[in-house]
C-alpha cells in the first residue's frame, strides 16, 4: 500500500461578499496516495479551483486542515509553505503564466534558481527535452504556440522532480489536438515518475482517465 501524500480534513472556505458570507468549499475531506492521478470535476463556480489552491498551500481554509507530505501546511506561514512548494510541489496553470521576456529555458530554470541549484541549466534542458521542446529552448513565449507554452509550463513544474503536481484546467486554453498531447504528457509523467497528479477539470474525458474522481457541486463533494 502506498503512503498517503495528501490528506484534506473538513476543509471549509468562506469569503465575504456584498450579499454576506459565501461558502465556496464546504466541509470537504479526502486523501490521496502517492502516485495517484486524481481529477476534481465540477461546473464553474463549484469551488474546485479553490479546493486545489488550498491543497497546494496557495490559500488557507477558513476551517479544517491539510496535510501534505506529512506536514500540516495550514498552520504554517507563507514562507514555510513556499519552502515546501519549492521542493515537493509542481503547479501548472490554465493561462500558462510564463514570464514573457524570458526564454523557454530561462522559464524552466526559474524554480531551480529559486532553490539555488548549481546545475539548473542542465536540468532545465533535460526537462525541455522530456516534453519534446529541445529545439525551442531559446524561444520566448510569444514565439510559441499554446500547446508549446503549456509544455514549457509542465517542464517548469517537473524540473525539480516534485512529489505532487497540481494542474488547474491545463487544457482549458488549448485546441483539441494540443489538449490530447498535453493529457498524454501528464499521464506519461504520472505513470513513469509516479508523481501524484491532481487535475482540476470539467473535461469528462480527462476525468475518465484518472484513478480517482472527486466531483464538486456548490462546494460539496458529491457522493
Amino acid at each position: 500500500m502506498n503512503k498517503t501524500i495528501l490528506e484534506v480534513s473538513n476543509v471549509t472556505k468562506n469569503v465575504s461578499s456584498p450579499e454576506g458570507e459565501l461558502t465556496i468549499v464546504n466541509d470537504i475531506s479526502l486523501s490521496l496516495e502517492e502516485g495517484v492521478f486524481a481529477s476534481i470535476l465540477g461546473p464553474s463556480g463549484s469551488g474546485k479551483t479553490t479546493l486545489l489552491a488550498i491543497m497546494a498551500g496557495l490559500d488557507l481554509p477558513s476551517r479544517g486542515s491539510v496535510k501534505l507530505l506529512d506536514k500540516e501546511i495550514t498552520s504554517l506561514n507563507e514562507d514555510k509553505r513556499a519552502q515546501i512548494r519549492s521542493k515537493d510541489v509542481g503547479f501548472v496553470f490554465q493561462s500558462f503564466h510564463l514570464l514573457p521576456r524570458l526564454s523557454a529555458l530561462d522559464n524552466v530554470m526559474m524554480p531551480l534558481e529559486i532553490l539555488g541549484a548549481k546545475d539548473a541549466k542542465e536540468r532545465a534542458l533535460n526537462a525541455l527535452d522530456e516534453v519534446g521542446l529541445s529545439k525551442r529552448t531559446g524561444h520566448v513565449p510569444h514565439q510559441l504556440s499554446g500547446g508549446e507554452k503549456q509544455r514549457v509550463a509542465i517542464a517548469r513544474a517537473m524540473v525539480k522532480n516534485p512529489s505532487i503536481l497540481f494542474a488547474d484546467e491545463p487544457t482549458g486554453n488549448l485546441d483539441q489536438s494540443s489538449t490530447d498531447n498535453i493529457l498524454d504528457l501528464l499521464l506519461g509523467i504520472n505513470q513513469q515518475t509516479k508523481t501524484t497528479l491532481v487535475v482540476v477539470t470539467h473535461d469528462q474525458q480527462l476525468a475518465a482517465r484518472s484513478d480517482m474522481v472527486f466531483e464538486l457541486q456548490e462546494g460539496k463533494l458529491k457522493c
Binding site: E78, A82, R85, S86, K87, H97, L99, M110, P111, I114
Partner: peptide
C-alpha cells in the same frame, strides 16, 4: 502583477 505570486508558487520566499 502576477510575477511575485508566480515566484511564490514555485517556492520563492518573501526575502528572495
Amino acid at each position: 502583477l502576477l510575477n511575485p505570486p508566480l515566484m511564490k508558487v514555485f517556492g520563492a520566499s518573501k526575502k528572495f
